[in-house]
């Protein structure tokens, strides 16, 4: 009766293509604190304590908040190829 919506990835498309800089994590440096997971506005960082983090580049928009909040600077924003 109504055009309803249900939660699904890509409600605005493949937002990873928006990215001009890519967050690259150095897992040697990562202290497993979870702050990047907590602040990621996109929910593209998975974190399980003891297993550190993983970034979903299909949807990461490359805002750089994760790199900015990382207390040990374990995440580097590196230019996307072709940009």
């Amino acid at each position: 009766m109504l055009p309803l919506s249900r939660p699904a990835p890509a409600s605005a498309g493949m937002t990873g293509t928006w990215r001009t800089y890519k967050p690259v994590v150095n897992l040697q440096k990562c202290i497993d604190c979870g702050l990047c997971w907590l602040y990621c506005p996109e929910s593209v960082i998975d974190w399980e304590k003891g297993y550190k983090i993983q970034i979903d580049y299909t949807y990461c928009k490359g805002c750089g908040i994760c790199a900015d909040v990382c207390p040990v600077k374990a995440i580097n924003m590196t230019p996307e190829e072709g940009i």
């Binding site: 939660p7 409600s11 605005a12």
Partner: peptide, 22 residues
């Protein structure tokens, strides 16, 4: 504690928010 917060994604990746939306 941060590791006690739920892991379920209530914000679903690929949404229409601007990058870095507070």
């Amino acid at each position: 504690r941060i590791d006690q917060l739920p892991k379920k994604k209530y914000v679903v990746p690929g949404n229409a928010a601007c990058a870095g939306c507070g």
